[in-house]
Design a protein around this nucleic acid. Sequence first.
DNA 1: TTTT
DNA 2: TTTT
Lengths: 148, 148, 148, 148
Amino acid sequence: MLNKVVLIGRLTKDPVLKYASSNMIPVTTFTLAVNRNYTQQNGDRLADFIPIVTWRKLAEICGNNLKKGRLVAVAGSIQTRSWDDNSGNRHWITEVVADEVKFLDSNKSSGNDPMIDLGKDIHSFDIDVDGGDFDGFSPVESEDDLPF
Amino acid sequence: MLNKVVLIGRLTKDPVLKYASSNMIPVTTFTLAVNRNYTQQNGDRLADFIPIVTWRKLAEICGNNLKKGRLVAVAGSIQTRSWDDNSGNRHWITEVVADEVKFLDSNKSSGNDPMIDLGKDIHSFDIDVDGGDFDGFSPVESEDDLPF
Amino acid sequence: MLNKVVLIGRLTKDPVLKYASSNMIPVTTFTLAVNRNYTQQNGDRLADFIPIVTWRKLAEICGNNLKKGRLVAVAGSIQTRSWDDNSGNRHWITEVVADEVKFLDSNKSSGNDPMIDLGKDIHSFDIDVDGGDFDGFSPVESEDDLPF
Amino acid sequence: MLNKVVLIGRLTKDPVLKYASSNMIPVTTFTLAVNRNYTQQNGDRLADFIPIVTWRKLAEICGNNLKKGRLVAVAGSIQTRSWDDNSGNRHWITEVVADEVKFLDSNKSSGNDPMIDLGKDIHSFDIDVDGGDFDGFSPVESEDDLPF
DNA sequence: TTTT
DNA sequence: TTTT
């Protein structure tokens, strides 16, 4: 019926950009560390580590420009998927499918890496709603090959 | 940093109310079926099945009043936890911790079951922010015994 | 940068469906009464009354099917507009532009009015993202004629 | 019933911190410029300007630390209020009451002004849910004196 | 098995 | 009547 998520956090690692085997649609995945507001008395857990998936043009922008440690805002929805391991056991996965990803800090790696110039403003990228060159809009497809 | 979720869906089963073994805090869990807007061409998946956790007073209200099939709105945040199985394998779980649960349909089971009278209005219940009688506010505690 | 709203409430009046004078795009407006969780000690204000605007296909669905008192969920964003009155004074308006409207209760008026059959399930309608027959996608256009 | 807002944007001016005349509760107001994702063909409107209100401890933190141009995330709810002008005309105001404000950029004004040291991390502040020393929790009180 |  |  309704399924809305907004997160702000940092990438735990560099994102992973792949092309789905069946239709070559770009798909990028990363994990977001979202710090909790309170501090545990034992100092134990301080963050939630939330798997994020992006598709198509947004996947390419994220895969080519985000890096470990970058601060981003993600808007999207929660999705559940299942996959079967080699032993025939079914595993369930809950992840966030991002519709929008906003880059909230400037590019830290000022070296000569192939990142685009983010300029002096905060950049934001929306999802490619019409699917660009891709054949037919399907909100979620080719869920195989996802690393989670 | 920021972690906000809003869901509307139906309970896939009756909720499960337990009392955490360490401190007897009430905790209720259920799974929400959230229908997607689009229809798969193959008619395959139409909904996401999202695990929900509630604590304290809200847990008691949900555990005592919700039933399979009821339509609810949930506001809260995404949480990740890990647990180790008997074989020593660690499993990761992503679920939604509910701060607010709104009952969106009237009581379907008009029989003589022990459900409270929901009256003619939509009822809503907020989380017990101060923790009631409990000693000290801890946003998430006693995560053992969770059924997910 | 990011602008997300989710509301659940009831229409204070029947919605108003118009066609924008410049380009004949359908636009429907209504006000949502969103009850607050707490009760004022003086019993004064119990709800916020939030102006909602919808465009295109979603506007037609809302304008033709919603009625005063219906319970709906709205997802969208906050928008600010200004207009000048006859005395040359500028007025500022804050409203919610709906991307999605979900009908949460069944059709109350079971008479022979021209409402569509909502069936036994909750119906939901998304915004017409591609704009249908309209010439070029413009997220908000023709803001004149709005009744707020 | 349910009323959730998340915004990311920049302060158009320095925030205004006042103490409500009736009970001396701190209240801070500011306007957030939230850039839209799309560009108008005429280059006209690019942002929404959304009035924000915060209360109590969060009001003091915002009033003492935020400045014009700072990038923040705001989570809260939409509120409507009315006030009567000298001519006896009633005016309606829609604003966002912030429960959480996250500071997303580091302190720009590195001079010797009285701002607190924000350190090298992103700082976040939650609302003072129990109201501190104040007598009884009332989510919104003393709405007079608000500058909007 | 993690970000700052 | 506005931010970057």
